[in-house]
Design a protein around this nucleic acid. Structure first.
Lengths: 158, 158
DNA sequence: CATCCTTGCTTGACGTCGCAACTATAGACC
DNA sequence: GGTCTATAGTTGCGACGTCAAGCAAGGATG
């Protein structure tokens, strides 16, 4: 059985089978989806001792007004569950990169605030992140229309 | 601080900063990398009670000669560590979808063999997998050169 | 202002994954 | 053929991520 292309009898439910081009693309996607995140994360950990998710968290905080964000906003920016975000922020707090303060307008909420140490850590890690992304991703995209691809991926992400 | 674009002082190490197009693409990539695998897997689990990694394992076995593969080959096909693969196969074996037999030529090795039940399970799950991939990925790629993209991702995966 | 539902976040329990350590077999060398 | 190293695979363990349950505060309703 090919990946996705059915044997004749197995596509009875009105599913539109994949064209050969689609099939090839999906096959590759399956590899990329597993390999790429691990490669990027491993690179960041090896070079900077800073997992991708931590980097992303610090990054989003650094871009927010007052360098702070509600837990739920941070979670959705990082595409992570709220509980997962809680634990990431707890860890970063323990490392002194983030502080947590009660939200003014809503006493149920917490704001994660980037500390100066956290900002410095982000600056330190930045070149490694760029290198990782170039090496594992951008460098392989020669000849593609980056604008179009970005737009497409934007839709995929939603 | 923008994602990846440095503030002036923070790019001293000869790292080539990202162009705006690259920057936008990388931002989106970060979201896709986290969201897409989880979305696909969640869809498969919800609709078929079959995690993506299990599907992929059954699929690769179904395509192999005699429907069997050495553990290490299976692991690299699935972009997974050998130990991770061991546990996936143990689980699938418990469900009766694969069997393990000693490798003829090399008594250190094991072959994972797809059972008839496993093949049937794969056929059952196939339309859901296609639907998931269409819905979460292919449908958003209108207007892109699929061949070129596939080739690019092929390089990324390596 | 008492009640009830909702929302924001944390915690507990659980499953998954990878690394490092371990076992068993293969193969090379003498 | 005994020893020594390399390879295939499994297992112990720690890190991490999700879901479901819990808790505390908001907000609507009478």
């Amino acid at each position: 059985m090919s990946t996705i292309t059915p044997e004749p009898k197995s596509a009875p439910e009105g599913v539109q089978p994949l064209s050969p081009d689609e099939e090839a693309l999906v096959r590759t996607l399956n590899r990329v989806i597993y390999a790429l995140p691990r490669a990027l994360d491993a690179y960041m950990v090896r070079e900077q001792r800073l997992p991708s998710i931590d980097y992303l968290t610090l990054m989003h905080l650094s871009e927010a007004p007052e360098r702070q964000l509600r837990m739920s906003e941070l979670a959705s920016a990082c595409e992570m569950s709220l509980s997962g975000m809680t634990r990431v922020v707890q860890k970063l707090e323990g490392q002194g990169f983030v502080q947590r303060v009660r939200c003014e307008e809503d006493a149920r909420g917490w704001n994660a605030v980037l500390t100066d140490a956290g900002f410095a850590r982000l600056e330190e890690a930045w070149p490694t992140q760029v290198a990782a992304v170039r090496r594992h991703f951008l460098d392989h995209l020669a000849g593609l229309d980056l604008k179009a691809l970005a737009k497409a991926l934007e839709n995929v992400a939603t």
